[in-house]
Write a protein that binds this DNA or RNA. Sequence first.
DNA 1: CGCTCGAATGGCAGCGCTGCCAATGGGAGG
DNA 2: CCTCCCATTGGCAGCGCTGCCATTCGAGCG
Lengths: 338, 338
Amino acid sequence: MEGILDQRVAHISNATLADVAAAAGVGESTVSRVLRNHGSFSAKTRERVLSAAASLGYVPNKIAGTLASAGSRLVGIVIPSLANIVFPDMLRGANRMLEAEGYQSVIAVSEYDMGREEEMIASMLAWRPAALMIAGLEHSPAARGMLTASSTRILELMDLDGPSIDIAIGYSNIEVGRATARHLLSRGYRRIAYVGHDLNADTRAGKRVAGFEAVLRESGLALADREMIPTASSLEVGQIGLERVLTRNPQVDAVYFSNDDMAFGGYFYCLGRGITVPSDLAIFGYNGLAIGRVLPQPLSTIRTPRVEIGAIAAQLVAQKAPSQRVDLGFELVPGATA
Amino acid sequence: MEGILDQRVAHISNATLADVAAAAGVGESTVSRVLRNHGSFSAKTRERVLSAAASLGYVPNKIAGTLASAGSRLVGIVIPSLANIVFPDMLRGANRMLEAEGYQSVIAVSEYDMGREEEMIASMLAWRPAALMIAGLEHSPAARGMLTASSTRILELMDLDGPSIDIAIGYSNIEVGRATARHLLSRGYRRIAYVGHDLNADTRAGKRVAGFEAVLRESGLALADREMIPTASSLEVGQIGLERVLTRNPQVDAVYFSNDDMAFGGYFYCLGRGITVPSDLAIFGYNGLAIGRVLPQPLSTIRTPRVEIGAIAAQLVAQKAPSQRVDLGFELVPGATA
DNA sequence: CGCTCGAATGGCAGCGCTGCCAATGGGAGG
DNA sequence: CCTCCCATTGGCAGCGCTGCCATTCGAGCG
């Protein structure tokens, strides 16, 4: 008895269109039309097909469907990291809109490695996705080649400083750095240091520093110090970096951190050492994380439209929009730490 | 000129196995063998095929490949949210291991809605994934039915309190609640309140509270108050919730928050109001976020092995392990706030 | 020198579904 | 009562690739 049942169950889950057609006593095309609610068929037929499909536990095979119809509903998303909250945020925006439009996201994480990014792009392209979203504008030559040659819709997110392949959505990281520098200068800080993580990998952070330094130069200044820690960004790294800078240069009056996480590390370091923020030392971050808003002293930072970038990217995929650049800007949050 | 070039480029990106075979002057199967490095072929043939593929810009079509060979390298992952850091963390662990094993993740987000979860499961199953990872053990009856009937490897993550379908990996949320209660009781707190977000949706948070209350009952106590805010968890919600509790019950001496984010909100609320932690009010969270460690007063919380859960799940997929339960436990971090 | 054996290779039937086209049949119009 | 038309429906050729089987062609061996 059990053997028979098992067999039936096993068979059920592998039912094909043809099985459903046979069970319902109609042709395959009719089943296909009913299930996709596309084309014409009678109400009676509809019932028969639907109940046959249900009783067989039929699950359509999208692999076959996609191959036959050409054009999948998959959207590939290649991001550098999942540890940096920025990317889950962007993903969230993209995912919500994509799902609403009937797309499915396939994600890949490059760990800030262009070589891996290239592999993942190749691998994603092999699924013939409807579109490919990639963080940033910098890619290996081979990757650029593949992206350019492919007729797939390409969306490069989070950066506008440079040439894009098809669609670019984000904001200028250079401008972020410039705005930050102008803010700090306007508050009277002059001996400013930078504390960041590995810049070779994170080109956007590099652009922010470049913009920041450019404005300093325009005012006849330069960075008082810079500490680059060749690890992934983290709270601890912010603490350590700040400690090193203050040891070398006790007279520094403001620190620009490469992101809010690092800045929190620095901020709490100050709290623990009795360094008063911002009168003894000003702290400025980047990202506009929620936690910065509920601190007794809200963190001075730049709020970026991460979720929106993802959402708009998804909309453009659905709309099959023409190639374009979309600048979503950013917002400087004065806060109370700088 | 340009027209011709465009045409050629367009053609290039759509090259098929047959095109490569023709260009290399060999049969399709030979190309397939060379490209997959599977089966035998001469070195000379290999060269010819590889250069033909390269010059055509051939990108294999995995859709077709999968259909023909049955069995994809896709792993579906269904999580309730991307806003709650827990899931990106788990995803990170899973993704890293999966990529190393040559799998690709397809993710779907249910927004804590069982109806949507059911849809996403159906939709994922339609891609005939090698495995399906789902957060939690509670699913709609229909979803359970599909999962059980399908012969796909099913991994239910982050919860062990209840029956699982195939493989379950995580820890007991009930035990987390119990351990938390024991800790607070041992520190002498007796008038304890709970501040949480919507529990109907988040069954795991519900289990933690249940375990917590069970221990209180065993000591002849009960929750002094509970504030459930029917929104997604956030720092602000933690602040508001705590404020309401303290307004109603100023004598409360400890608060158990449904997670670290809420707890941070509460902690900073205290800092702003001059409420001394933990002497005036103890605060306990859940999740073990990095930021809790760098606070001047480290947050008392429970550290959960989120990344590991994802990683181990991925390993079990690769190993085609038998059905099992894997308890990864959790760690109570005493901290300094409770 | 003939024969065996296996490496190297090509041919081709599907995988499950969609898209196109032809076939069917019953009602409306004349 | 006969056409014509169109809503329904079935048949079937692929989509691009893999798996299996057959074939070819030397090399090694007795």
